[in-house]
Every structure is written in structure tokens, then in C-alpha cells.
Simulated assay, not measured.
Amino acid sequence: MTGTGSASLFRLDEVGSWGAFYWLGLVCSVGIVGVNLYVWTLTGMPQFLAVAGSFAFGVGLFFTRFWSPALYLLGVVHVIALGVVWLLGGRAYLVLGAVNGVFSIGLLSVALSLFFVEHREGDD
């Protein structure tokens, strides 16, 4: 049932055109999910489960037709909020916090870059 009016929920046709930068952003996002899930299993602190869930939701959303360049900016704000969560509740896990920080800085850089690239392409 593929009519001209029906669009797939997932944008799998675009995946082949994604460059290394897109995949780096996804790897950083999945890394953030993993670190925060692990810290949640160690501490039981619900904020780490919420962070992991929200980043997992973002990864899933990235593969759908609902994704837009404006969501990169939301991701940047989300990464900054993640830093606050780690400063307030994750200081006891310095090594995991450093790993999470590397993933976060990578995602922040990728998200800002992709926002400007895709926003510029949308203006053409």
C-alpha cells in the first residue's frame, strides 16, 4: 500500500545518504543512553533513568519523518541540562561522568553543525 499520498513513518530511504557526522551524533547519543542507564543501575537515582530515556527517545525520533533541524537546537539544550544533572547528582562517578562528558561535547558539536548545515540547505 504505497500511494503517493502515504509517507512512511521512518525515513529509512535517507539513511544511506547520512555521512559520518550523522553517525557520530547517533553514537554519542547512544553512548549517553548507555552511561546514564548504567549509573541508574548503580544508584537507582531516577534522574539518570529519565536522561537515558529522553536520549533514547531522541535517537528513535531521529529515524522518523518527524525530525526537523530545529530539534538539533532542542538537543543542544538537552545536553546542557544533562550537564547540570551530572553536576548535581553524578559527581561520585568521576570516570563515568568524564565519558558522558566526552559523548555530550561530541553530540553538542555535531548537533550545532548539523543544524546550521541543514538549516542552510532548507533556505535554498
Rank of each mutant, 00 (worst) to 15 (best):
T43N: 10
L108P: 00
R65D: 05
V99W: 03
L108E: 01
T4F: 14
G34L: 08
V85L: 04
E121D: 08
F116S: 04
W67A: 00
T43F: 08
W86Q: 04
V39K: 07
G53A: 14
D13F: 07
V27L: 13
D13Y: 09
V33I: 10
A98L: 14
G5T: 15
V30T: 09
E121A: 13
G25P: 03
A92S: 15
F62S: 03
L82W: 03
S68A: 15
G44I: 07
L107F: 06
W23F: 10
L73G: 07
S68Q: 08
T4S: 14
I105M: 11
G3Y: 07
V102I: 14
L61A: 13
L61W: 05
E118N: 08
L94D: 07
G44E: 11
Y38I: 10
L107R: 08
G101E: 08
N100E: 07
L88P: 08
L12F: 11
A81H: 05
H119K: 07
W67L: 05
M1Y: 12
V84S: 09
G16S: 15
V77N: 12
Y22A: 12
G16T: 11
S113M: 06
G58N: 04
L107W: 06
M1L: 13
L26A: 06
V95Q: 09
A81L: 13
I105V: 12
W86A: 00
V85C: 03
W23E: 02
G90F: 01
A50W: 09
W67T: 02
L114R: 05
W18T: 02
W86F: 06
H119D: 10
V30Y: 06
